[in-house]
């Protein structure tokens, strides 16, 4: 089964990194994967998005018209990508920064959680992306939890041990949250 995810937010919210962690974890789990960033002039003005496709087979286009999941971190990104979700898809919305949408026309699964606020409680606004990742992976078992933790560890290792702890805590918070909303 192929799963196509659009991730979007403001520059600095760690959206590209979130996509990369997801992609690397998928690779580590021996899946095929593509990660496609927005680039060049498009990234000016503070929005950032990337597209991740995870599959068991060869992947065609890395570009996503219609997604199985949307992970949206701010209002402008919701305006832009909100209508790209397939029926039955998952909409993971950052309640801290995006208004709760009116009852959607399509049948979708809405997960509306304040990732930024949770991150601040955990210790830093910067780990909101990791909270969302934990939540997302609890809902959609695209990659193994252990693999995701391993990738987070290796990425944070470059910074400091405290950063590893902070990120793992954020991931765990998100994961618990995801299990609850299931």
């Amino acid at each position: 089964m192929e799963h196509r995810i659009i991730l979007a937010g403001a520059g600095g919210q760690g959206i590209m990194l979130l996509g990369k962690i997801l992609a690397e974890a998928a690779m580590k789990d021996n899946k095929t994967v593509t990660w496609l960033p927005s680039y060049g002039a498009e990234v000016r003005g503070g929005t950032a998005n990337c597209m991740v496709v995870i599959s068991e087979e060869e992947i065609g286009s890395p570009y996503i018209d219609q997604a199985d999941s949307l992970i949206i971190f701010n209002q402008p990104s919701f305006e832009r990508f909100g209508n790209r979700l397939l029926p039955g898809g998952i909409l993971l919305l950052n309640a801290s920064l995006v208004e709760k949408p009116a009852f959607p026309k399509k049948k979708i699964r809405l997960i509306y959680q304040p990732f930024t606020d949770i991150a601040m409680k955990v210790g830093s606004v910067k780990v909101a992306n990791i909270v969302a990742l934990g939540c997302f992976l609890a809902v959609v078992k695209l990659v193994r939890k252990e693999t995701a933790i391993e990738i987070i560890r290796s990425k944070a290792k470059e910074v400091s041990p405290q950063i590893i702890e902070l990120n793992l805590k954020a991931f765990e918070e998100g994961f618990i949250l995801g299990q609850d909303v299931k």
């Binding site: 095929t32 994967v33 990660w35 680039y39 992947i59 890395p62």
Partner: peptide, 10 residues
């Protein structure tokens, strides 16, 4: 092309 240049794959 831009897609191939920018995308990541294993």
């Amino acid at each position: 092309d831009g897609m191939l240049g920018q995308m990541m794959e294993p």
